[in-house]
């Protein structure tokens, strides 16, 4: 089905440059250009494949890019497809832009808000783009791999030392040392400076 979908996308949505490649295991995604995402999804919705339900919008952070996945399903023809698009990340804290698909499915409203909240991807055209799970004035984009929790939120200490589970911190530390790619272990908590006896306890 994927090759036919790629042909359809390339003919209906000009310039979306759809590509796909066989995968060894799991599902096979179709990659499209980010600038034409709305046109591409519209073509799929109106095609004979009848992708009438938007199941999911989510992101995944990589070192140089954020990949946004759109999972579409058809409840009449019974099939599903993963459409992905790559957004290049010029710097680690840059906010990225992409078009919204709110005009196609109302479900996109909440899903785009969640992706914005977690990855800092702005969906242009979403009528109500606010943070959804985190507080409105939260700093940073939690599901990015280089995210570190802010130290203070309003007048509250976010990560008070007496409430930190030190075992977890040392566990993450050890994993980082063992892991081939330390960047995979983002940890998210800034390790505070512990007194020497706590440090010694954690090292063993």
């Amino acid at each position: 089905m994927h090759n036919e979908l790629v042909t359809l996308l390339n003919s209906k949505a000009n310039g979306c440059d759809a590509t796909t490649a066989e995968v060894e295991c799991g599902d096979q995604p179709i990659f499209v250009e980010a600038a034409h995402i709305n046109a591409a999804l519209k073509a799929l919705k109106e095609s004979t494949y009848e992708f009438n339900v938007l199941q999911l919008i989510t992101g995944c952070d990589f070192e140089d890019r954020i990949e946004i996945s759109y999972i579409l399903a058809s409840f009449t023809k019974n099939h599903e497809v993963i459409i992905k698009t790559k957004l290049a990340k010029p710097s680690s804290d840059a906010i990225l832009d992409i078009d919204s698909v709110c005009d196609l499915w109302l479900a996109a409203g909440f899903l785009e808000r969640e992706t914005y909240d977690m990855f800092g991807v702005r969906f242009n055209g979403n009528p109500d783009l606010r943070r959804i799970l985190c507080p409105d004035d939260w700093e940073g984009w939690p599901l990015r791999k280089d995210y570190v929790v802010q130290e203070k939120y309003k007048h509250m200490l976010v990560n008070p030392q007496n409430k930190i589970n030190t075992d977890d911190l040392y566990f993450f530390d050890r994993q980082k040392k063992e892991a081939a790619e330390p960047k995979l272990w983002s940890g998210s908590w800034k390790k505070p400076e512990f007194p020497a006896e706590v440090e010694a306890k954690g090292e063993k």
């Binding site: 995968v23 060894e24 599902d27 995604p29 199941q55 999911l56 989510t58 999972i71 599903e80 993963i82």
Partner: peptide, 17 residues
């Protein structure tokens, strides 16, 4: 690789990506 799998839970479809 990647996978999207959904199951029918009491409250609706649950999908893991």
């Amino acid at each position: 690789g990647e996978i999207y799998m959904r199951t029918e839970c009491p409250r609706g479809e649950l999908g893991y990506h």
